[in-house]
Design a protein around this nucleic acid. Structure first.
Lengths: 230, 230, 230, 230
DNA sequence: CATGAATGAGCCTTCATTCAT
DNA sequence: CATGAATGAAGGCTCATTCAT
């Protein structure tokens, strides 16, 4: 007995919540917390206003849920982008460019940008949200990235003392120009421009952290993935 | 004998405009554009509400004036911080640390932070403000900084291809950790922490751009980091 | 045993719309569009102010609905007054006096007067309303009246070339003195005065349009300003 | 180099009052009492707002002065139009058409129409103004017109019992269609249409009041209120 | 007197929230 | 649970009026 045929209407029993959050996400991102009106959100979600109060209580709570949702999505995207981090020594620059581009794409992603704007806008009203989002997002990504960089360092391709810091600086160098180029995420960016920005960041990163290759190389011969070598 | 404002000042002063902008600046920074109420601003400025409309027209215009004001102040501060940029070769790292600290202090400055938050918050409603502020602030600072860096490069102490990019990256590396450490500018930062962050940024910057001093002199006749040479 | 309003009637009635329109009608008529305040209307209707916005949108729309309502009522009243128009030749003057009195009563009716005042007052702001009201009211009445007069003309009792014009002139002669006598409808009129005014109008109308009764026809044997001496 | 301000400024010593009243007249006529703002009036008069309070006290008083002014002008115009009333028997219809056209032109005059609209609009707020205007305007005109008609009656060309009533009815028949044709005075009227309306009114008036000319003469010999004998 | 500046009051409108169904 | 209807509170803006110059 599948309740499939009740797709449309009766489905709403429970995932109206999803519709509400999705609509709220759009509206909040578009108009900000203060100017966003529950009427608009309700209309855009196709539900009545009190339904919002039934599923989520009030505007403030709705906002928290929305932010948590975007943060989770952005985080997932970013972690996915790091999944394919190169473990292969050769073509280090290319690999960094590739993963850097993925990260930059996450950075300029519409929802990620909206999240940043909303955080900036409402941190005064919701001081706690900042840490919540930070922990559920960038911090995890930084840590993951730091791990990858540490591996490369261990493999001898990079010279890194503090991987966390290096990870942060990698991202800083990658995303350096993006806010100005996208008007804080409100204007789309030309893919070529994005790639150029990434290349510039990676370039400087390598100038700072690439292990000099004067010695004809023969890198530490280890599989590189080996964390914490012996 | 300036009758500044010690006068009985009961009514009709001309500098109420200043009071209004100052109050608006505080209130907008504290509550954001949407939630800030003209009642609050008027009360905080010690004027009646219509006085705001006499001096500046409406909420939107007031906001624009306020943003222009903060942007101008922040820009002035930043340019002042760059004024004393070292042109003297010795102690390059110390000098960069010093000026970096000044820049970082500008970055975490309360008004500067508020400006960043307001821009993020309201860029959707005031798309034009972003470019205005950018041109009247960061862009000028970046250019000034780029000039200083170019001089150092000319003197052989740094190896820089694109001074504008280097300036941007310098700032990016300096301010890298500050948003997280100050909760987007809403929490004061420990001076030691600030210095540590600056030091870290300068360190990486020098790793990337300092001319190798093995050969004490004759500036790096190399292509520098010629991107992806052969 | 009508549960008129003895019901607890605490909230959420549907006929609040009627209450709002009724109250708005009173307030607009009393204070004019510009000075009428939605607070007053809401209070007088026993509803909260936003309820007005739920049922009818905004002040302007409310005004239009109110005017349409009065126009419709006035029109209905006037057409009813014409329903009993005499088709019977004898006692033509009496019949005209009777129907003239009915029309004059419609003219001095409180709501009809208020409608005229509001139209005059706000025609600059609502230029379209004039034609709307005209078509939904006076024009219909004039046409109906013209039909009745034409029938009398056909029957030989009146000599009328252009029935529409005659109808208009009939009304003009009837209502001639009423604005001055009622202070544009703001002061009640003595029924005797009203009747006198009507009689005077009918008299002149008959002098202009009554078919000469040279044929024996027992003319209006009364002296009464007798035109057409004979 | 322009002596612009010498022109109107110093002259303003005393007739700023005139400028204010003229501007107020325009603004009140255009926007009505309620919506007219003293700011607009002051701007249109080229004076500062308090100047209005110096010359005339407050909005209400200004309105009274303005209405008195328009009423006086309209009255003067109307009386002037009656000045040339025919006393000469021949061509009675043409003469009535001529003077009727003049009266109708007074009726559709912009200021006269505005006066009527303002009176309708604000009679509730200024109940006394109605009688003031009536006495200073229409009543005088009616009386003057009645005198002329009485003279014609005395001369045997018209058969009139009550000249005041006849005068009122003459005007009523003349102006019958004008409100509808001019949208209460807000739309200009085609001169031909105006003439047609007047002709129609005069026609009916003559049907009602013209002495039958079968027996060419022996006028009713009554004095009939005839003022201005001779 | 004339003016620029200031103000208290008020209005139209909208919002987040809650009953009652 | 979901909804239509209703509401208290508040916001932005404007106005008629008054000081102080």
């Amino acid at each position: 007995m599948t309740e499939r045929d009740t797709r449309n209407a009766p489905r709403g029993r429970l995932d109206k919540r999803q519709a509400i959050i999705a609509a709220a996400l759009r509206v909040f991102a578009r108009e900000g917390y203060g100017q966003a009106s529950l009427d608009t959100i309700a209309a855009e979600a196709g539900v009545a206003k009190p339904t919002i109060y039934n599923h989520l209580g009030g505007k403030e709570n709705l906002f928290r849920h929305v932010l948590a949702e975007i943060a989770a999505r952005s985080n997932a995207k970013t972690l996915a982008a790091l999944q394919t981090f190169p473990t292969d020594p050769q073509e280090l620059r290319d690999h960094l460019n590739t993963v850097g581009l993925r990260l930059a794409e996450c950075f300029v992603d519409e929802q990620s940008s909206a999240l940043r704007r909303l955080l900036h806008a409402e941190i005064a009203r919701f001081p706690d949200l900042f840490d919540v989002v930070l922990d559920s997002g960038p911090n995890q990504a930084t840590e993951a990235l730091a791990g990858r960089l540490a591996r490369l360092a261990n493999a001898g391709y990079l010279t890194i003392e503090d991987p966390i810091r290096a990870a942060r600086q990698f991202v800083a160098l990658l995303t350096d120009e993006l806010p100005a180029m996208t008007a804080l995420g409100t204007r789309p960016i030309n893919p070529d421009d994005l790639e150029r920005a990434v290349t510039a960041g990676v370039d400087t990163f390598l100038r700072a952290f690439a292990t000099p290759t004067d010695a004809p190389a023969d890198p530490p011969a280890r599989e590189a993935v080996g964390p914490l070598p012996g």
